[in-house]
Amino acid sequence: MIKNIKLTYLFIFYMGTLLISGCSKKEDPTPEFAASNLAPFSVEFDNIVGERTFSLNNSTSLYTNAAGEKFSISMLQYFISNIKVTTADGKEYAVPQNSSYFLIKGADKATRFAKVKVPEGDYTKLTFTLGVDSLRSTMGIDHRTGILDPASGGDHESGGMYWGWNAGYIFFKFEGNSAVVSDDINGDPTGKKQFKYHIGGFGGYSAPTINNIKVITVDLTTAGVAKVRKDRQSNVHMFVNVMKVFNGTNGFKIAEHPNVMFSDYSVNIAKNLTELFKHDHTEN
């Protein structure tokens, strides 16, 4: 079956090559950039864990971080927002804010696509925010609908992403279990060996506070320019390597920081979060 699909792809690829070489380049010209000439575009957030695929509650086959700590994952959710694309000659298009918020949930594969509309064109750069921008984080209740509705997702155990006491969103929520978590108040006093990373902080309403909003810029030239056209679905396929939470530049041990929420240490982890995203390929 898989082999067949691969063969089909090869065939299509072959035919495609034939077609392209067969016709003059004018057949697929870069369209004139016009902000109103919108076509479908998506970014796929494909979660992985180091060299392995992502799976929830993997207690029978644990992951191992750089510090040698074995762990399983029980929850992964993060906000992606404010998608922007740029062409090689510097033309930019920012998706209107109201249609540019996505909650990627590890437990629900259907949520892995951020589907938007951008003008037809060839894009060499993709920019997005990991988290919810500070402007939206200070907006009135009318502007907090859908996934930004503080009621959505329920309480924190069931996946809610809103911090009532701090009037902000959790940008990145990552939980799991590891035998290295202690049973005292520094670890998990319930004895369930849980670790919890709830990373948020939009910079404060009136006075500056920690800001863990991360704007991520991806160069698409190496792994595939996004050719957005009306008659197809251009999809930028990203790998999101959650192992980097532990193994990024600010690597740390679960045993030493089993719970990080709204605290100064969260800034270190948030830096690692920028290293999660790698462009694998583009489906045009």
């Binding site: 209740i141 809103y162 009532g164 006491w165 009037a167």
Partner: peptide, 16 residues
């Protein structure tokens, strides 16, 4: 502090 908009305040007691 922590809450700066009355419309967002009731979430705190309800979920605490």
């Amino acid at each position: 502090g922590g809450v700066y908009d009355l419309d967002l305040q009731p979430i705190v007691p309800i979920t605490t």
